[in-house]
């Protein structure tokens, strides 16, 4: 005898799914309070700066910032500015949209380990953000993108709104 014995359930096709269709558009809107950490971070982006916080007890720099050290459980000791430049830690090429539809063209996205003058980071913990990387998907497939130096391509000042999208993408910065 193989368990489970006679598992039940009634498989259906999409077209047969008689029930209630319930539109949700407009029904779950939020006005997130950014708080001090992300509020300052977003304002920094608007000025073309990437800001982080620092815990002087353990020496960690937090980008994206928070007001507490996740490791020492104490308030952070202030703000530091990261360079808008760093190296790619990992990256992928997306051929689909958030909706699962096929994308018109591949979009490369990855995690960038940022540089902060006066601080050194290993592979274990580092200030890093996820963003688009403006390179060809071949750079991903060949794995050449790992360790690539990239720099933020900022939107023009007048288009910036205080969002992560104030950076258009990161682009190769040369060696």
């Amino acid at each position: 005898m193989t368990k489970p014995v006679n598992p039940r359930g009634t498989p259906i096709k999409e077209a047969e799914a008689v029930g209630i269709e319930f539109p949700v558009v407009g029904k779950a809107r939020y006005n997130y309070t950014t708080g001090e950490a992300l509020g300052v971070f977003l304002a920094g982006l608007k000025q073309g700066r990437i800001l982080g916080t620092v815990c002087k007890r353990c020496g960690r720099v937090f980008v994206p910032p928070r007001m507490y050290c996740s490791y020492c459980f104490r308030p952070v000791d202030g703000w530091v500015e990261a360079r808008d430049e760093g190296v790619v830690v990992t990256a992928v090429a997306s051929y689909i949209e958030a909706t699962r539809a096929r994308a018109e063209k591949a979009r490369v996205v990855g995690v960038i380990k940022l540089e902060v003058p006066g601080y050194k980071f290993d592979d274990h913990f580092f200030p890093g953000i996820m963003h688009y990387i403006c390179v060809d998907d071949e750079a991903v497939k060949s794995m050449g993108i790992f360790g690539m130096r990239v720099r933020a391509r900022w939107r023009p000042v007048e288009q910036r709104v205080g969002s992560i999208t104030d950076i258009e993408c990161f682009e190769p910065a040369g060696p």
């Binding site: 029930g19 209630i20 319930f22 407009g26 029904k27 779950a28 809107r29 939020y30 006005n31 997130y32 309070t33």
Partner: peptide, 18 residues
């Protein structure tokens, strides 16, 4: 709750859909 712009709609999502 002050973060929710559509609190009533969100609460209504708890009701049995049928």
């Amino acid at each position: 709750p002050s973060d929710m712009l559509t609190l009533h709609d969100v609460m209504s999502m708890a009701l049995d859909p049928i």
